[in-house]
């Protein structure tokens, strides 16, 4: 067998080099003429496959139809989304780099040293979809309503363990807010992701979870879990959840909403921003996008950039208040450094 293995290895190395070089290229040419003249990069600060990633890919799918250029989804996960977000904040404000913004980005700037306060240091483009958190328990649990859950927790302090996916994140603050308002003693168990969290709930190792229904719906449909209450202003607009009351109806002001949207770096020219917002509005309202957003378990909800910017700031204020009230902020602040 005459095989030139050296040539093979060299071309192998060459390909690897190309791979490095290729990933570093961020072409930056003038944004004059008619925006957009080239594809738009969408930074997703999470790993592929998450809800943010799915939203970005759903938008990218119909992008060319509405703004004449495709969107290219780039995943930059790590450090609780800060790596991707900082890259978005640092990127050239020419309208060719935008990124996913969501409710998961509210916490970091409040408790730690982040380079940007995303709520004010990024330019909101639009909200695409949202979903309120829900309180879920196993179907065979001895409580079938929120009232029963609360009286069980009161009668058995410390017996109810709930899981969350990171100190201070919404799966942590929401149950803490409930326990504060209802005067409960429930114990948090930290997990490093939604999957082990749900596996633990299904296996009966923890008793409750407050999370977005996206990850829970399959088990809800299969009758393995019961949803006791919704942490939204109104009930979820989905026949599946039409009988589930809100916390507000039951007298507890627990509001925790997951939302997904788009943002651009600050300093983007006004006319480019306007075009971007208009273009994204068309993309967001495309029936195909609406369908895709629904399929992933979110409620499609378009909100324009101006409103989102205001909402973003007010949400951050309210989560800050929750953190202060529940004492989580004190824990986080004490532990830093």
């Amino acid at each position: 067998m005459k095989f030139d293995s050296r040539f093979f290895s060299l071309s192998f190395a060459f390909v690897s080099l190309l791979f490095i070089a290729g990933s570093g290229i961020t072409a930056a040419t003038a944004a004059e003429a008619k925006y957009p003249i080239k594809p738009i990069t969408v930074i997703v600060p999470y790993a592929p496959g998450g809800s943010s990633d799915l939203v970005a890919r759903a938008l990218a799918k119909v992008s060319a139809k509405h703004i004449g250029q495709p969107m290219i989804v780039v995943n930059k996960p790590g450090a609780a989304a800060q790596i991707g977000l900082n890259e978005l904040g640092d990127s050239k404000p020419d309208g060719y780099t935008i990124g996913i913004a969501n409710s998961g980005m509210l916490l970091q700037p409040l408790v730690g040293k982040t380079k940007y306060n995303y709520a004010t240091d990024l330019e909101a483009i639009a909200m695409i979809g949202q979903i309120p958190f829900v309180l879920a328990v196993r179907t065979d649990a001895p409580y079938t309503t929120l009232e029963e859950f609360i009286s069980f927790a009161k009668a058995n302090p410390g017996k109810i363990k709930y899981g969350h996916t990171g100190v201070g994140n919404m799966a942590h603050t929401a149950p803490e807010q409930l326990s504060l308002l209802a005067g409960l003693k429930i114990e948090p168990v930290p997990y490093d992701g939604g999957a082990p969290l749900i596996a633990s709930l299904l296996g009966g190792h923890i008793q409750a979870v407050m999370n977005n229904p996206v990850d829970l719906q399959a088990h809800f449909k299969a009758g393995k879990i019961r949803v006791l209450a919704v942490a939204g202003e109104t009930r979820i607009d989905d026949p599946m959840y039409k009988d589930v009351p809100t916390f507000k109806e039951k007298g507890f002001n627990v509001i925790t909403i997951l939302w997904q949207g788009l943002a651009a770096p600050k300093g983007i020219p006004e006319d480019v921003l306007m075009q971007l917002r208009e273009g994204v509005e068309k993309i967001a309202k495309d029936p195909e996008t609406v369908q895709a957003v629904k399929a992933m378990g979110l409620v499609p909800k378009y909100m324009n950039g101006k409103d989102l910017a205001a909402y973003w700031v007010s949400e951050q204020k309210s989560i800050n208040k929750t953190l202060e009230d529940t004492g989580i902020m004190k824990v986080l602040k004490e532990q830093k450094n």
């Binding site: 990171g166 100190v167 532990q335 830093k336």
Partner: peptide
Amino acid sequence: IDPMTAIS
């Protein structure tokens, strides 16, 4: 980051 208390 410590998973329980978020201490670095």
